[in-house]
């Protein structure tokens, strides 16, 4: 078990990272010139109301004590209460996080399935018409404004062709007659787990446009990264040797070369995944997708600091875990990588 000790050590490191991030975000949230107590009581408060709220929220205590209270609550699974909605944040997260995960994972899946093969073939046929078109597509994918593409897709597939819904995660009819029982909160997964095939179909139909929109950037990235590493790998002598041994071109490209070339692509897609957890805000708004990005943006606009701190922590956890997974994947793909 060369992995186990490594994983444990990395997770211990992760705890350190989380503590630091929580302190930094907590302090930043407190020192910005705003009054959470005033936000808590709503518009036109009396000074007495504010003072009462301040005491309720323990804002009159020293900063370190506020932080300790916060962390103790966190460890009990209590993320605090939204200043704006007065709802427990854990309940909000249970809705928003799976919705975002579903969307972002779908987009990453599309990016891998579309971007990697295009990158491989583009690298293999360097200088060909196919290569030029693919590179054009990759530049377009990276630089097209998301909101513009989203509106364009809605115009085409909803308004003109009437093929796909405008937005939201499921249709009202389904919610009424064939509701998806929530297990993970990711509707595609839940409908498969509960055998709700009408639900699966409805979910997928709703997922297509937002996932495609969100995927354009990582598709462009995947093409670029895969193409450039493939060019490097294809000039290696072991590829020449494989050709000299009569190995078929398909096996050379998609097995022998790709296993050497895929690691940088996986790394950028992993980081792009974490970024999209909160960075998909525009796509979420346009497609009425109740996700983490929208949640965080609202919180920032309302100076809803418990939400800001919590979402930051959640993203940090993802960041740490995804990085760990990326390192493990790299070690699994390349035997020369040692885990230390």
């Amino acid at each position: 078990m060369r992995w186990l000790g490594y994983v444990v050590r990395r997770l211990l490191m992760a705890v350190l990272v989380l503590v630091s991030v929580s302190i930094v975000t907590f302090v930043i949230a407190r020192v910005i010139p705003s009054d959470p107590a005033a936000a808590w009581v709503g518009p036109h408060p009396t000074p007495a109301q504010i003072a009462k709220a301040r005491e309720e929220l323990a804002l009159d205590r020293p900063l370190y004590e506020q932080y300790l209270r916060y962390v103790t609550a966190l460890l009990r699974g209590d993320f605090g209460t939204s200043v704006k909605s007065h709802q427990p944040i854990s309940r909000d997260l249970r809705n928003y996080l799976p919705a975002t995960m579903e969307l972002v994972l779908a987009a990453m899946l599309v990016a891998v399935v579309v971007g990697v093969p295009l990158g491989v073939l583009s690298g293999a046929r360097k200088g060909s018409l196919f290569d030029h078109l693919t590179r054009l597509a990759s530049v377009a994918g990276v630089s097209v404004p998301t909101f513009w593409l989203a509106l364009l897709l809605q115009l085409l597939f909803f308004a003109k062709l009437r093929l796909l819904p405008l937005g939201s995660r499921i249709s009202n009819e389904l919610a009424l007659y064939n509701p998806i029982r929530q297990i993970t909160g990711m509707y595609t997964l839940d409908s498969i787990l509960t055998g709700n095939w009408a639900g699966l179909r409805d979910t997928l139909v709703h997922l297509i446009l937002p996932a495609l929109t969100l995927a354009t950037y990582p598709i462009g990235l995947a093409i670029r990264m895969t193409r450039s590493t493939m060019l490097e790998v294809l000039s290696e002598r072991y590829i020449l040797a494989a050709r000299a041994a009569g190995i078929s071109e398909r096996a050379i490209l998609f097995v022998l070369a790709l296993k050497n070339a895929i690691i940088p692509t996986i790394t950028v897609l992993g980081l792009s995944f974490v970024y999209s957890l909160t960075g998909a805000m525009l796509v979420e708004v346009i497609f009425s997708w109740p996700g983490l990005g929208t949640y965080l943006t609202d919180a920032v606009l309302n100076i809803d600091f418990p939400v800001i701190v919590t979402v930051t922590l959640v993203v940090t956890v993802f960041y740490v875990v995804v990085n760990l997974i990326l390192d493990l994947v790299q070690a699994a793909l390349d035997p020369r990588v040692t885990l230390r």
């Binding site: 002598r237 072991y238 020449l240 040797a241 000299a244 041994a245 022998l256 296993k259 390349d334």
Partner: peptide
């Protein structure tokens, strides 16, 4: 069949 100079570079490192 053909073999080359520098066998270290001729074998695929990840298989």
């Amino acid at each position: 069949a053909m073999i080359f100079q520098d066998p270290a570079a001729t074998l695929n490192p990840v298989f």
